[in-house]
C-alpha cells in the first residue's frame, strides 16, 4: 500500500476540549477510505484537518502533521488555497453557488485561471458534467440557476465543481446524508468509479454504506483512532472490542 496522506501525532482542540487525540494513520492512494464511528467521535473533525477547514472555526488549535505526498500541509510556507485546490470536498448537503449551472463548474477554474480561452472552459465544464453524469440532464439549460436542480443533481454538480479544479484527493463528509436512496446510490457509484483516478476519503454514519464503499477503514471512538486497516480485515476480524461492538450494531 502506498500512502497518499500520512497523519502524524495529530491533535486538535476546540477551545479547551480536545477533539482529536494523537492520530497516526496512513491513507492509501487511489482507494476509498471510510472513516466510521459513533456521532461526536471526531470523524468530521479529522476529515476537516485534511483540507485545513478546521481553522475556519474560531479557537481551534492543531498540533502534529498531515503529510500529503510527503509534504506537511500545515507548514508555514504552504498556500492554503493550493491545499484546498488539491483536496476537494463534498459536503453533507449540496451547496450550489448562487449562479448558473455552467458558472458553478467553471467557478474554481476561473479562480485559478486554469484555462486560456472561453472554448477551453466550455470543454472542461462539459467534461466534468459528463463525468458526474449530469451533462445529458442539463445540457439544454446550462445557464439556468443551479438552485433549479433537484437535490441529488445539485450534489453531483458540487462534485463536478470540485473535480474541475483537478484535485488528487476527494473528501466526502457524509455526502449522501441529505439525499434520497436513488441519488445516494448515484453518488456511491460515482465514488467507486472515481477511485481509479482519485484518493477518496469518506465519513459515513451508515455501516452498510461503509461496507459498500470501503477499501480501507478507519474506526474512531472519542477522538481516537481505535482501528484502521484494509476493509476486509476490519469488517471480518476486528481487533478491538469496541469496533466489534459497533459492527454488530451495539453502539
Amino acid at each position: 500500500m502506498e500512502a497518499h496522506i500520512q497523519v502524524r501525532n495529530l491533535n486538535a482542540f476546540y477551545g479547551k476540549t480536545q477533539s482529536l487525540k494523537d492520530i497516526n494513520i496512513e491513507i492509501p492512494r487511489r482507494q476509498i477510505t471510510v472513516i466510521m464511528g459513533p456521532s461526536g467521535c471526531g470523524k468530521t473533525t479529522l476529515l476537516k484537518t485534511f483540507n485545513r477547514f478546521l481553522e475556519l472555526v474560531d479557537d481551534t488549535k492543531i498540533t502534529g502533521e498531515v503529510l500529503v505526498d510527503g509534504r506537511n500541509i500545515y507548514d508555514r510556507d504552504v498556500d492554503v488555497t493550493e491545499v484546498r485546490k488539491c483536496i476537494g470536498l463534498l459536503a453533507q448537503r449540496p451547496y450550489p453557488l448562487p449562479m448558473s449551472i455552467y458558472e458553478n463548474v467553471a467557478y474554481g477554474m476561473h479562480i485559478h485561471r486554469m484555462k486560456n480561452s472561453r472554448d477551453e472552459y466550455r470543454k472542461a465544464v462539459r467534461h466534468y458534467l459528463e463525468v458526474t453524469g449530469l451533462y445529458e440532464e442539463v445540457k439544454h439549460r446550462l445557464m439556468t440557476p443551479a438552485t433549479s436542480l433537484s437535490i441529488g443533481q445539485q450534489q453531483r454538480l458540487c462534485l463536478a465543481r470540485g473535480l474541475a479544479v483537478e484535485p488528487e484527493i476527494i473528501l466526502g463528509d457524509e455526502p449522501t446524508s441529505a439525499l434520497d436512496p436513488i441519488s445516494s446510490q448515484h453518488i456511491e457509484r460515482l465514488l467507486l468509479d472515481l477511485k481509479q483516478d482519485y484518493t477518496i476519503v469518506v465519513v459515513t454514519h451508515t455501516l452498510r454504506q461503509a461496507k459498500r464503499l470501503a477499501d480501507y477503514v478507519i474506526y474512531m471512538y472519542m477522538g481516537e483512532v481505535l482501528e484502521s486497516g484494509p476493509a476486509r480485515e476490519v469488517f471480518n476480524n476486528p481487533r478491538h472490542e469496541r469496533t466489534r461492538a459497533y459492527l454488530e450494531g451495539q453502539i
Partner: peptide, 20 residues
C-alpha cells in the same frame, strides 16, 4: 456552507466575498 463551498475549491476569503 455556501462560503465553505467556495473556499473548498481554493478560493480566498476575499474572492468568496466578492463572488458569493
Amino acid at each position: 456552507g455556501l462560503r465553505e463551498a467556495s473556499l473548498a475549491v481554493g478560493a480566498t476569503r476575499w474572492q468568496t466575498i466578492r463572488a458569493i
